[in-house]
């Protein structure tokens, strides 16, 4: 868990400071505040879906359980954003952002789209192992990012 200063190169600034959670998403953000990654799992067929959706795309059932995931995964694909779309992003570029396939899930349907931090953006590759790192923006909002596994 880290709190970063504004305007760090490679880090997309937390432009949302509240989660706008509803009943279907609040458990995710509550766990996030504690630095835990959780996802919804269909109690009928076991398919994970993230972000939460009202029906299982595999079996159309509605009942879910929230399952804690290890918070590790693999870069499925990514980009390095070099041109800032807004002046406020000038200190952040270049930053890496991509799709993470989460360990403990089936992959597609439960991927996360995240900023990839603490990395040489020119060295990021598909297939790299990453782990989640939470930034606690405020007591109600924690932002997930991923960084390379350094073991």
């Amino acid at each position: 868990m880290t709190t970063r200063p504004e305007g760090t190169q490679g880090v997309f600034p937390s432009i949302m400071t509240e989660s706008f959670a509803d009943d279907s998403t609040k458990p995710f953000w509550d766990a996030a505040a504690e630095g835990r990654l959780v996802a919804t799992k269909c109690t009928n067929c076991g398919t994970f879906r993230l972000p939460p959706k009202p029906f299982c795309f595999n079996c159309q059932h509605r009942d879910i359980e929230w399952v804690e995931l290890p918070g590790t995964g693999t870069i499925y694909s990514f980009t390095v954003v070099r041109h800032p779309l807004s002046p406020m992003l000038m200190p952040a570029v270049p930053y890496a952002a991509g799709i993470i396939e989460l360990d403990g899930t089936q992959g597609a349907g439960a991927r996360m789209i995240c900023n990839i931090v603490d990395v040489d953006v020119d060295a990021v590759k598909i297939g790299d192992k990453v782990e989640i790192v939470w930034e606690h923006v405020n007591p109600g909002m924690s932002v997930p990012r991923f960084r390379p596994v350094t073991s």
Partner: peptide
Amino acid sequence: VPPSAAFTANAGLLSPGHSFSVLAQR
């Protein structure tokens, strides 16, 4: 801002170009 947008708003993929870059990379 729908609740589901909170899952992606801080990711840094902001535009069609960013999304299609990810497809192209794959």
